[in-house]
């Protein structure tokens, strides 16, 4: 079961949305990284939102995994926004110096979408003009 399970990636206009609702294993992280890069390549997305509302903890391993995904996406011209982090987990992250630096965070999914929209004003063909200078 574990081997066939995948974290779904949803495309909404220019944005890819991923919601992580289970404990991340090596296998899932590897798969997710690969799937996200493929989706970015395939869809011309300009933003990636990772919804973390389902996380039970954010340890250094998970933090690194998410930071890696953010870095890979940035290399491909896509900005990553994390959202819906449980407030207590956020406090723990900061208290323990684990916050994923260099990645934007938003209170919830709406805020994350608004943020990305404000950064990437759609061009005439509906694609982002800003994409090239990220």
């Amino acid at each position: 079961m574990l081997d066939v399970f995948k974290i779904p990636i949803i495309k909404l206009y220019d944005t890819l949305i991923v919601s992580i609702q289970m404990a991340l294993t090596d296998q899932l992280v590897r798969q997710l990284k690969q799937d996200i890069t493929m989706e970015i390549d395939r869809t011309d997305a300009t933003g990636l939102i990772i919804d973390l509302s389902g996380m039970d903890v954010m340890d250094s391993y998970i933090t690194k995994a998410i930071r890696d995904i953010g870095l890979v996406s940035r290399l491909m011209g896509v900005e990553t926004v994390l959202c819906s982090l449980d407030p207590m987990i956020a406090i723990t992250l900061v208290e323990m110096d684990l916050s994923p630096e260099g990645i934007t965070t938003a209170l919830n999914l709406e805020a994350a979408l608004d943020y990305l929209r404000s950064k990437h004003v759609p061009g005439p063909e509906g694609t982002s003009q800003n994409k090239a200078n990220v």
Binding site: V57, D59, Y61, I91, T92
Partner: peptide
């Protein structure tokens, strides 16, 4: 709850 999450993180590490 904040300590519970912290301890859970420690165990995870």
């Amino acid at each position: 709850i904040s300590v519970r999450i912290g301890v859970a993180t420690v165990i995870s590490e």
